[in-house]
Design a protein around this nucleic acid. Structure first.
Lengths: 316, 316
DNA sequence: AAATATTAAACACAATGTTGACATATGCAA
DNA sequence: TTGCATATGTCAACATTGTGTTTAATATTT
């Protein structure tokens, strides 16, 4: 699709998280982009320019010098950023990874953001929550936002809710708000027309969507086209969707460990209906309780989004 | 239906949210439209003109310059706006959109749109569904879109699903897609800071959100601030939310008629916890089966969105 | 007669461009 | 170590342009 449209610098700033003067300076000093000009000498950026600036910002955030990355083309930038993300997640994995799962999350700068978010959630202040999260979202690469903010935030929410320290409404409010943010991010990932498709859903009985949405986002960033069908979907329907959409993989998100026997039955049905070839990925806090059933259907259990992405990319 | 009818500038202003002088200025400076004139030199706009001005306003609200966007044709504008609808960090600079007033019936018949939507749903083609619906959404005032398209569409979906003619995945896919469209519309309604608040949710056991979202949208258009807490919320949590958020009303959406006795208990609890003063609105296909319980808690049953809006506006 | 439109000019203010300077960090050389 | 050059982010000052709004005089509609 050709991009006939052009965007003013303010728009670009909003979308990249770069300050307008920085965009100009980068252009002048390093020639990172060469925007058109209006008759009145105003810069007009294309979608490609925006993409490129986003990538450059990510690369710089990863610790690279702007002067050196400025010369790379988009493909090289993508590779660079991806490598950095993997390194970092590996590092995080080796770090204080408690098996209990929901310890105080990463020691990164994400902590204050999560605290502020949690506060808005307790106060049932959805606009505030949205503000906090979208501020964080501009500053961070998508993947980092999800891994460092969204995942730990919902781990905390789950903990607090289970111990009665958080009302159900609060959890609902958080889910509704965050799912719309994730959904928007999902739609802005551009992938090729012929990208392989992956069905994303949660099995019957599992009603929490956030995990499924994060995996859809991860899949999209790994070059797949996610087909998101939401929560609480019976096995035969999942299998039907896989076939009907001609999907090459399936991702299931298990957010709790209730009803292991029913889940086991459901999973079995899915495997039988989908055939033995279909790669089935499973993730979420509920996997622990479903161990045996998962082995039986040869599901690929992913403890975090990065391993999910790694395996997805290996499939292609 | 042929619409040769032409509209005076006042009408166009009411329907686009643009001030009359701005419409003239845009025409003079950027040639955005070229309306006919009466014998007395007054401008007469066509429906196409109105649609174009609406699109332009949307594009401008998204952060584009009117001068650059004025040159795009309608197709490009739609593409631009659809992409930009995903943007978070927008600060609205326009005044509030037009109040209800007397909306003339839509020039487009909804029927073909619904058929096309249904077709996409059966095919599990989410992008197609989104295209169909967002095309319809730019043509129609928000309220008309909801009343003439969304509501009948989901009535059809419900029928087809109950009779086994539609898969559950299809229904899921439609819900996920439409809820994101409605959510986007919801966040673009501008209302005053001090607008009275109304809590919107569905009671425990009711998991369909679309009805609740449409009522949230209706409330927003009637000058209220809806606080949306999603589906399947226990009675005490609903009551808590009402108090915590200092809401002046409550809207419940009942999408099916299962478990009437449990519902009755839930409703009773809500009324007791919320106090006898709180106006409770109830709507949706499930109201029929809940008759007695609704009377007992003095709920205001709304058969359609318009009566809901009327009663809401009477409250202020 | 009252309400509304039209035109043209002017106004006000925000957004953007350009230039030059400054601050800080980093690395290299003396 | 000190000192200097380089890389990079930031800001201030000022000119220009873009765009929403107002005003005033006139005309049309109801």
């Amino acid at each position: 699709m050709e991009t006939l449209c052009t965007h003013p610098i303010r728009y670009v700033a909003d979308h990249t998280g770069l300050k307008p003067y920085l965009i100009r300076t980068w252009e002048e000093r390093y020639g990172v982009v060469r925007p058109h000009r209006t008759s009145g000498n105003r810069r007009l950026y294309s979608d490609d320019d925006i993409r490129r600036l986003k990538l450059l910002k990510q690369a710089v955030d990863c610790g690279h010098n702007i002067s050196t990355v400025a010369e790379l083309d988009d493909k090289e930038l993508i590779a660079l950023v991806k490598r950095a993300a993997q390194d970092r997640s590996r590092q995080a994995r080796q770090g204080p990874s408690e098996p209990s799962g929901s310890q105080p999350p990463s020691p990164t700068s994400a902590w204050p953001t999560i605290e502020r978010a949690l506060n808005s959630i307790v106060q049932l202040d959805a606009p505030a929550l949205e503000t906090v999260l979208s501020e964080a979202a501009v500053d961070l690469p998508r993947q980092t936002f999800v891994v460092d903010i969204v995942v730990p935030l919902f781990a905390r929410i789950g903990d607090l809710w289970r111990t009665g320290k958080l009302k159900t409404v609060s959890e609902h409010m958080a889910s509704v708000t965050v799912r719309s943010i994730l959904w928007d991010m999902l739609r802005t990932v551009e992938n090729a027309q012929d990208a392989p498709r992956i069905v994303v859903a949660t099995p019957a009985g599992h009603r929490h969507e956030i995990g499924a949405l994060t995996s859809a986002l991860a899949a999209a960033e790994s070059g797949w086209t996610p087909l998101y069908f939401g929560p609480n979907l019976p096995s035969d329907e999942i299998a039907y969707a896989v076939k009907k959409c001609n999907a090459r993989a399936l991702s299931l998100s298990l957010c709790h460990s209730l009803n292991a026997s029913r889940l086991s039955v459901e999973l079995g049905k899915i495997r039988r209906a989908a055939g033995s070839d279909l790669p089935i990925f499973v993730g979420g806090p509920g996997v622990a309780a479903a161990g045996a059933a998962l082995e039986r259907i040869a599901a690929m259990v992913c403890d975090d989004l990065q391993t999910f992405r790694d395996r997805l990319e290996m499939l292609t």
